[in-house]
Write a protein that binds this DNA or RNA. Sequence first.
DNA 1: CTATTTGCAAATAATTTGCAGTGCG
DNA 2: CGCACTGCAAATTATTTGCAAATAG
Lengths: 151, 151
Amino acid sequence: MHSGDPEVSRRVKEFREAAKSAGVKLTHQRLEILREVIGRTDHPSAEAVYRAVRVRMPTISLDTVYRTLWLLTDLGVVTTLGPRREVVRFDPNLKHHHHFVCMRCGLVQDFMSADFDHIRVPEALLAVGEATSTHVDVRGVCIQCAQAREL
Amino acid sequence: MHSGDPEVSRRVKEFREAAKSAGVKLTHQRLEILREVIGRTDHPSAEAVYRAVRVRMPTISLDTVYRTLWLLTDLGVVTTLGPRREVVRFDPNLKHHHHFVCMRCGLVQDFMSADFDHIRVPEALLAVGEATSTHVDVRGVCIQCAQAREL
DNA sequence: CTATTTGCAAATAATTTGCAGTGCG
DNA sequence: CGCACTGCAAATTATTTGCAAATAG
């Protein structure tokens, strides 16, 4: 995927519109960062985006990259892999299990399911690697948060 | 789950054995930390374990909690939620997708699957919350790492 | 006894923030 | 032309490490 890619121009245009309606300025830095992150499939860290963009724009700073990536996230143009700012959390459950994750409060509840332990994976994955196990994240809203919202 | 729980004693015994065969000492601190983490289902952070253990053992330090939790992880007594030490990574793919994760090199490859988008979840989850979407993590070894291992 | 382990304090790493100058609309 | 944005440097937060004293085996 390079800069001339129609997908990239489509997403850049999408961002121009989102930026306008959010009253956000279109700076050279923001466009470069956006082009870089859209053109990648390896889920880069802020640092990795910084290194790549700096080649074309040597004066850019790492904190601008951070600020811009969070801005893009807030505008719904990109997402993050896993939750924002994760601290290490420990899990005493050694059995193969799955998670229910509450999108409101971050609750993570384990559950077992023999069906989920070995789901048949798409044929196309053979080209990526060999699958060992499958883990399902069920996202939703937990009972407590659902009740709090009803009030 | 409290200290008298048979499950806790079973796991403590398991740890005593693992510790002996690894040539690791059984300190008061380690046993308290182990009891605390085993007795919880909320996947606590090191900080949370520290706060809880400090009630019974006021002189314990946060770094001992960290060292012990990683020790327990290395001994295979507990695991972590997500990979060790995660940096934020950004994902430009806004479509509902799933991940193939290589356990060797950390590669995360997106893939689509309409089947995986809405798997029927176990009835028991109704007691936990309302499910909105399902996301599958397929763990395994990617082609590159598999080839490297063959050499 | 003596090698591990602990607690303290200082070091790191990733990320965020305050501020003065710069540039988009 | 004014307010949002940038770059720099300094602050924060989570986690790790060096070291002298404490302790398990």
